[in-house]
Design a protein around this nucleic acid. Sequence first.
DNA 1: AGCTAAGTGGAGAAAAACTCTCCACCTAGC
DNA 2: GCTAGGTGGAGAGTTTTTCTCCACTTAGCT
Lengths: 238, 238
Amino acid sequence: MSTTPRPEPADALGAPADRPRPPRMRADARRNREQILRAARAVFADQGPDAPLDEIARRAGVGIATLYRRFPERADLIRAVAIDVFTALVEAAREATDAGRDPLDALRRFMHAALDLKIGSVMPTLVGRVTIDEILEAVRQDAADPVEELLRRAHEAGLIRPDIVFGDITMMIVRLSRPLPGGGIPEDEALAHRQLDVYVDGLRPAGSAGPGTRLPGPALDAAAFKRFRGRVMGGGSG
Amino acid sequence: MSTTPRPEPADALGAPADRPRPPRMRADARRNREQILRAARAVFADQGPDAPLDEIARRAGVGIATLYRRFPERADLIRAVAIDVFTALVEAAREATDAGRDPLDALRRFMHAALDLKIGSVMPTLVGRVTIDEILEAVRQDAADPVEELLRRAHEAGLIRPDIVFGDITMMIVRLSRPLPGGGIPEDEALAHRQLDVYVDGLRPAGSAGPGTRLPGPALDAAAFKRFRGRVMGGGSG
DNA sequence: AGCTAAGTGGAGAAAAACTCTCCACCTAGC
DNA sequence: GCTAGGTGGAGAGTTTTTCTCCACTTAGCT
């Protein structure tokens, strides 16, 4: 809760909405920053939050010093990646809503888009690693809202079984978007999309085709989800 | 290099079939070995194939020296764990076949059991880390066979859509049985079972409830699966 | 009960992996 | 063509992990 006037001018992370700071950053620097962010997303996805920064710099095609200059601490990098992804996620949700022929189709499109973003690899990385500040909180809420909305509509249209909740959507994306350990299979990503389609089919009401199993296990609705996440993030270890 | 009369009597890993060596191992030693194996499975599942052996010893409640005596190299430990898991998997398939009310139910039961075994965390760990030998190959084949059998029956009964293949079953278990990065959620495992049920519902023929999507992406049948794995494992770096 | 080979734990040296700074050299943009 | 802003990489310092050695304990036999 440091109330410094403006301690770190350098890393215009998400550039807070209330002060659209003029990005006095050279074009090449900006380009490098993007590349670092992209590389970081991939590497965090691969190896988790403690992945060597070395590797990130290498994959981004920049020197390690460049990474450190732009993101003095690991947490800075993680936060930047998170904001990046959440923002893209909101966009994806909007597009999916517009493009979907019906609410379930929209949901399906959204999930595929989220999968491409590797959101699932980044979100868990974020959890507990970054002290959640107002900026991030705002973006995160932005990201959660449209998902809940998509889900609500699908429910209203009766296109998915009634006991499907928020966590059933998000946590599956998390799982699917994580690359397999030990190198995995080259077709990994494509396979994930295939499996996602099967899963989405499984979301439909039971009555018709099969035995209509009852879903076991914890039903994590958005509230429970948020509560949990708040708990972990609140700890803010560093 | 002490030239003791019997070079390596200690690690009766898989006890080669052709010489059922009398396990002249003290009871406590045997007990410790089991505990190491169990701990290794959990730790490999959590942290991947490069998990510190330290941690495994600690979780097993033995000294690090004990672990090294029994499994001189990391690969030895990995192989032992793999054999362990594959064997349990065969058992699980048998039980599922017996207990299932119909082929799809059997498949479902099997998948839940495999999930509990964390097979998915161990199998990828194995890939590329261990030179595959006859014993391991045999056990692996033993494990693959009943899965194919389960799948075949479900197809014959028309309980699952025709384009579902081997990889759609196994790779999903792999994904689901992997713990989430960054600590994840305590209810993680239970949630995986819930998601599995949704997925299995999605395996059913499309005709009835929904739009009957066509599955995209690579259809990894058992042959393709095996071919791929052979390629990777053939490298046998160790 | 007593003997002993088999088994054990943990300290710590050696190696490997990772972090992060410093500085001489580029180059985008005026 | 000038220069503030940007860059890469070497390498010192730190942390993490591996793996050996040896004094001590105990299962299993007689």
